[in-house]
Write a protein that binds this DNA or RNA. Structure first.
Lengths: 178, 178
DNA sequence: CGTATTATATATCAAACAGATATATCAAAA
DNA sequence: TTTTGATATATCTGTTTGATATATAATACG
């Protein structure tokens, strides 16, 4: 690939499964991928144009009524690029936990503030955990199919780590009380 | 604060504890904070200038030999800004796991590739887990002191989640073999 | 039946951040 | 002695985030 952004890979990965519009891609990311990677319109739409320039995807626009819709399709070259990226074992894993930052610097404030920050985090985690568990439950009976196995694994990753977060929240709250 | 970047908060939080140079700040981040937040020279040095413009920090430069060194000190206004930020409960928590991305899209490739990607991830996690455990062990006897409690909590968070990662790696590898 | 809200759809811009690179000094090891 | 690694500041490019703009289609509500 001429230019290689991570969003390019996300898009190729999704298109490898089905044809999608930019808007669809955003939806797929928000549904399943956001737990470990994000995407915004601000990088999806430009990335689609770049991918098309590099012939990794092909677009076909259709007009339903007065409304334009550009659907993208992965090319053989695109599949090759995706495969090459999957084969490279190096991977950067970054976290940005504003909550942890707040806990880390809580010494500047008071225990009640730290406690409250954990509670807010806990609530968010609890909600996302419910979603992840739903995903996993839905995938459970079909996880033997190669197509769904990997989705199942990532959903499991989410469930496992989010459950660890909740356990930590419990412990941390106890320590702050005592 | 006029401008409010996350790196501003990281810097204020660190300076609230001790006076530091830009280089020191990078070191502190790499030692303890990188597990949940990152910082680079590319945003630390400009941020220090911005913070000084806004009177949240104060600098004093000293020349040891032919070498210049700019040490930063938090002001009362800076402490207030940090406290205000800590008081705001909303927090954005984002992950960027290239490894998970590779697993998610592994269907485009083969099981061996997915397996290898997990092994690489596992090895990295194992190394970081050792560091985090060292931190936690060192903090264990002094965690009752308010100053160290929060550092202990974040180290514990790291240990708990990294252990969850390793458990997931085991499970995932088994599923890929079977 | 009209109207208000939500979903669909594409697109751009500013600000924040990552990663690489440049430059130079100092300390320590080989 | 020379070369490696640590200290120290700084900038630049490219990527990503988050907000915003625009407009149409579908749906819910009174």
């Amino acid at each position: 690939m001429a230019r290689e952004k991570k969003i390019h890979i996300v898009i190729l990965g999704l298109l490898n499964h089905e044809d999608l519009t930019g808007y669809d891609i955003k939806k797929r990311i928000d549904e399943a991928i956001r737990f470990f990677w994000n995407g915004s319109f601000g990088n999806i739409y430009p990335a689609l144009k770049e991918l098309e320039e590099d012939k990794l995807v092909k677009s076909s626009s259709a007009t339903e009524g007065a409304r334009e819709k550009i659907t993208y399709h992965i090319t053989a070259k695109g599949k090759k690029a995706l495969d090459a990226w999957l084969g490279k074992t190096q991977a950067s894993n970054e976290l940005r936990y504003e909550t942890l930052l707040k806990i880390f610097f809580a010494g500047a404030s008071d225990r009640e503030t730290a406690y409250r920050n954990i509670e807010v985090f806990e609530e968010e985690v609890r909600q996302d955990l419910n979603i992840l568990k739903m995903h996993r439950r839905a995938l459970e009976p079909i996880k033997e199919e190669e197509d769904h196995l990997y989705y199942y694994l990532t959903a499991s990753f989410g469930v496992d780590t989010y459950e660890a977060y909740l356990k930590w929240c419990e412990k941390a709250k106890k320590m702050l009380k005592g």
